[in-house]
């Protein structure tokens, strides 16, 4: 089976600092991958490079056999890779439904219509369906600015799902969400994602969530991948335990932020 995403020798330097060095990753269809690592390990840099937000210093990114290394974010999205953000990227002045309708309209065409109304039955129906899949349809008419963090996260992911991506990258989907609501949120996310059949890679600090939802784990440390394999195996690796899991547990015990 050919991988849908091939990352070859990907490196990103910020001056003398190596934010990500010599990253090699293959992602296959239907995989659910957790990316773990302490703060500054290079996880978000990696996701930012794959989604076109950062230009790699060197290396190659192939998606479905096309070289997307130099693609801007909009071309990466159109190629079939979508993402959500650590801080939900929404349109706070508009309602939840309007956010979804804009997502549908903009993903439908590079040149959105200038004279056809945004609010039409078909777009509204499609938007409601996605909102329902993510259990946030009851907020449809609420302004985004008034929403709780968990709902914002779900809307952010729901909007990323609109273009039916082959690969979905979620940057810390549970960050900023109360501990007791994390599993509920991830259940909703995974339910929505699994319906689409997209491969999913999510950055996560909470090892309970990683164990429960991921079938593969990639562990980052100081800009490099130190382990990559089935969840149970990677989480038992001594280096992962020492540099990532241990640190993460310490954070949780201290009540610190998993940023």
């Amino acid at each position: 089976m050919n991988p849908i995403l091939e990352v070859k020798n990907l490196t990103k330097n910020f001056g003398a600092v190596v934010a990500a060095g010599d990253i090699n990753v293959d992602i296959y269809e239907n995989e659910i991958i957790a990316v773990i690592g302490s703060n500054g390990a290079g996880k978000t840099t990696f996701v930012n490079m794959v989604t076109g937000y950062l230009k790699p210093s060197s290396g190659k990114i192939l998606f479905e056999d096309a070289d997307i290394t130099a693609y801007p974010p909009r071309k990466v999205t159109r190629a079939g890779i979508c993402r959500s953000f650590q801080i939900a990227q929404l349109f706070p002045e508009l309602s939840v439904l309007e956010n979804m309708m804009i997502a549908f309209s903009l993903t439908a065409s590079r040149w959105p219509s200038v004279l056809q109304p945004l609010r039409n039955n078909k777009t509204a129906e499609n938007s409601f369906t996605v909102l329902k899949n993510f259990n946030i349809d009851m907020y449809a008419n609420d302004p985004v600015a008034s929403l709780a963090q968990g709902v914002r996260k779900l809307l952010d992911i729901a909007m990323a799902m609109v273009s039916k991506p082959s690969l979905l990258l979620l940057d810390e989907p549970t960050s900023g969400v109360a501990i007791e609501e994390k599993f509920e949120l991830m259940d909703t996310v995974m339910n929505g994602v699994l319906q689409s059949g997209a491969s999913t890679m999510f950055i996560e600090h909470d090892m309970d969530i990683v164990e429960r939802y991921a079938n593969r784990v990639i562990a980052f440390y100081e800009g490099r991948i130190i382990a990559d394999g089935p969840t149970a195996e990677v989480l038992q690796e001594p280096t992962v335990k020492e540099f990532i899991v241990g640190e993460d547990i310490a954070h949780q015990e201290g009540g610190g932020l998993n940023a």
């Binding site: 989604t51 909009r74 999205t77 990227q89 929404l90 349109f91 002045e93 309007e98 804009i102 903009l106």
Partner: peptide, 17 residues
Amino acid sequence: FAGEALRDNEVRVEYLG
């Protein structure tokens, strides 16, 4: 609407393609 969305969040507009 995309114009208003752009004022709010250019990054999201870009990631909608």
